[in-house]
Amino acid sequence: MNTQHWLVACGVAFSATAAPAQDAYPSKPIRIIVQYQAGGSADTLARLVGQGLSKRLGQPVVVENKSGAGGIIGTDFVAKSAPDGYTLLLTVPGPISANLVLYKKLPYDPRTDLRMISDIASQRTVFVVNPAVPAKTFKELIEVIRKQPGKYAIGSWGPGTQPHQMQVFMDKTYGTQTLHVAYKGEAPMVSDLLAGTIQMTSGSAATLKPHIESGKVRPLAVPAPARAKALPDVPTFTEQGFKDPVYVLTAPTSLMAPAKTPNAIVERLSREVAQVIKEPEVQQRILDMGAEPIGNTPAEATAAYKAFLPVALELTAATGASLD
């Protein structure tokens, strides 16, 4: 399974009716909704794509941040918006996957209320340890942890997220005894990692790369079948013999629309997004963020989502996390 991109369709019933006035699209400004505060990676990608789309479509593209409730507020806003191509969602994986497990009652269902336009970029993560941990490989780390049950803590940016999934899998599979420490975001988690309050985590390549280069943290592995372009010297989990889904699954930041948005509008937006992402300066900006450009078609993005989704839900469920 090619997990570097969302992998294969979300069973979203993408029925769409022809729009009589779609030749005139767009005739007014377009909004891209981001579920998190300004300044984060999703917000940066939205503004990068929006800028390019505005030039190509001849209409302003405005980014609006509707944060809160683990991405639910922004996602629900777009899911319930008019399906006319003027309100779009730039989303990270959690609100359209893990939230289905973490919350018993979601006001939206991403599988039926939204449809894919394009995957924008794959956000790469890296598993790192504080230099005080005497392990140079992931296999060595498991042995170190086994010898001192309860001593080592792994930080995450919230219950059910990738580092939490790894912590639960490690303890269940290898008989280790580790602690999980959940933070309200990546910044405080990394701060505690540098201080030695927690000993390990998996975080974004963009955030951790400067600390790796300065020697303040030690990288052990990156998820996904291929190495991260931002960290070419760091081996994958797969290269080290760890091929379970928790070590290879990755997912992109995606552009979506309300489910009943006409096919012609979705296809037009997808084509324009692909052209924006092909621009050398845009590609470089994305790479500088520690991500990797995609810009695929609606069918490809939908197909990728369907393959990713059941695996992501299973891994999230295994953590036992609930945010209701």
Rank of each mutant, 00 (worst) to 15 (best):
K136I: 11
A228V: 06
P219F: 02
A221W: 00
A291W: 07
A291G: 10
L141R: 03
Y183S: 06
G295T: 08
S214M: 09
A259L: 11
V282A: 15
P131I: 15
P20Y: 11
A301M: 11
H211E: 15
P60M: 06
L315M: 01
T87S: 09
E272G: 10
K260Q: 12
P149F: 02
A79K: 04
G320I: 07
D43T: 01
P60N: 08
L287H: 14
D192S: 08
V62L: 10
G70F: 15
I198M: 12
I142A: 00
H164P: 04
I96N: 05
T250K: 01
A121S: 11
A19H: 11
P159D: 09
T319L: 04
H211N: 13
P107D: 06
A226C: 15
L106A: 02
F77I: 12
A251Y: 10
P280F: 08
L90N: 06
Q123K: 13
M200P: 07
S97K: 04
L45K: 12
M116L: 13
V126A: 00
Q283L: 09
I72S: 09
G74K: 02
S97H: 07
M116A: 15
D324S: 02
A153F: 09
E279F: 12
A226M: 14
K105P: 07
G68I: 15
L220V: 00
A264G: 09
V49N: 04
P298A: 07
S191I: 05
Q4P: 07
L141F: 03
I145V: 13
F14D: 13
V78R: 04
A264E: 11
T201I: 01
E279W: 10
E140Y: 10
I32K: 07
A9H: 09
M289Y: 03
I96F: 04
A321H: 07
Q240M: 14
K104D: 14
I142T: 01
A13N: 14
K260I: 09
S156K: 01
W157Q: 14
E140T: 00
I198S: 08
V282T: 12
P93T: 00
S27E: 09
V311N: 00
L90F: 12
P293E: 10
A16R: 08
A18E: 14
A187H: 13
V92C: 14
C10K: 14
L208N: 05
M170G: 04
Q177E: 15
D119N: 05
T3K: 03
S191H: 15
A264F: 02
G85C: 06
G11N: 10
V266G: 12
K172C: 04
L287V: 12
Q283Y: 13
Q199R: 03
P134R: 08
Y152G: 03
L90M: 14
G70T: 14
P83H: 12
V49H: 13
R31D: 15
A38C: 09
I120L: 08
H5F: 10
L89A: 05
L269T: 03
F242T: 01
S118G: 02
S254H: 01
Q275P: 08
I212T: 05
M170C: 07
M166F: 01
F127P: 03
P29K: 06
P262C: 03
V92R: 11
F77K: 13
I142L: 02
K172W: 01
A135K: 03
A318R: 03
